[in-house]
């Protein structure tokens, strides 16, 4: 048709199709996700650059300024030892967010490896791995997490130092107990993708198994994995805060958000702000990550959009 030939060059100029741009467009339609991206960016920039701007030390004990309500000198107030809460939240946020990110990476890497292995192999290997995933899914997560940390904390502390030891332990355990949903997702994707024509074509051209997985199947299975990984960051932040809140996470001299809340909980009547700031920080981080995950689902998993 004459009309279409005329229209096509101009259409190509304005709307060149690219999967990334298309995904970004769909992501932007989720308004709360875009707002959340901004909130999370502010939080991340705050904890990364914060120490360069806000130079008070986290362990600067000042009994003259005990339990002071928020003021210009201490915008978030001070705790029972006169330590500046803003400084403690900035430094704690680095750890809380780093734990979330690192634990997510552990969960995703383990999940992708297990899921890909199960999805590519038929029979007993697949059945065994999925049985293992089901078994891990029915473990009571928090009690087990507490148990492992209780039993292994001292050993790792002596090997890697108090900060490093607890960090490695918490990341490994949280990540190690959260790989199952990713593994199931990846396996399901692999089972359907490996029968697709383009994979068959690649196989017919002599592609090795590794190349099939790495170049053809895995990239197409990544969408849901990215969504699950995003939500895992939020879950890991909650898990770490819970541990610290129960007094079984990082040691007292490392003020993660959960730890500050743990210290604050006995002073609710005199210093409610002390608990409100770290709690809101955890809440904002988790909420914005969850919304971003929801937006990414719209963007990367178009089949599930109704």
């Amino acid at each position: 048709m004459a009309g279409s030939t005329l229209a096509s060059p101009s259409a190509e100029k304005t709307e060149r199709f690219s999967p990334t741009r298309d995904a970004w467009r769909r992501f932007c339609r989720h308004r709360l996700a875009v707002v959340s991206l901004g909130v999370l960016a502010v939080l991340v920039i705050g904890v990364v650059l914060g120490p360069f701007v806000w130079r008070l030390a986290i362990n600067d004990i000042d009994f003259a300024a005990q339990l002071k309500a928020p003021s210009l000198a201490h915008p978030f107030g001070t705790d029972d030892l006169g330590q500046d809460i803003l400084a403690r939240l900035i430094s704690g946020g680095r750890i809380s967010l780093a734990v979330g990110l690192a634990a997510m990476l552990v969960a995703v890497v383990v999940g992708v490896v297990v899921g890909a292995t199960a999805g590519m192999s038929r029979g007993p290997v697949d059945a065994g791995l999925m049985w293992l995933a089901d078994l891990f899914l029915s473990l009571p997560q928090l009690p087990l997490l507490l148990l492992i940390i209780y039993l292994f904390r001292d050993t790792l502390k002596s090997i890697l130092g108090p900060e490093g030891g607890v960090f490695v332990l918490i990341v490994a355990v949280i990540g190690g107990l959260r790989w199952m949903p990713v593994a199931r997702l990846v396996r399901a994707q692999f089972l359907s993708l490996r029968e697709k024509e383009f994979v068959e074509a690649a196989r017919a051209l002599g592609a090795s198994r590794l190349r099939l997985v790495g170049h053809h199947i895995l990239p197409n299975a990544l969408g849901p994995v990215i969504v699950a990984g995003t939500i895992d960051v939020a879950n890991a932040i909650i898990a770490e805060s819970t541990l610290s809140f129960l007094g079984l996470g990082f040691p007292p001299d490392i003020p993660t958000w959960g730890r500050v809340l743990f210290d604050a909980k006995d002073y609710l009547d005199v210093a409610p702000y002390w608990a409100l700031f770290p709690g809101s920080a955890i809440f904002l981080a988790v909420l914005s990550i969850n919304f971003i995950g929801d937006g990414l689902r719209d963007a990367l998993d178009p089949r599930r959009v109704m």
């Binding site: 709360l32 939020a234 819970t242 809340l261 809440f283 909420l287 929801d294």
Partner: peptide, 22 residues
């Protein structure tokens, strides 16, 4: 719903204590 499951239980607990008890 998003707000509900993004609020960790330890924080909601403290908030409720702050409002209804304190």
């Amino acid at each position: 719903a998003f707000i509900g499951f993004s609020l960790p239980t330890f924080f909601t607990g403290l908030l409720l204590i702050l409002v209804f008890s304190v």
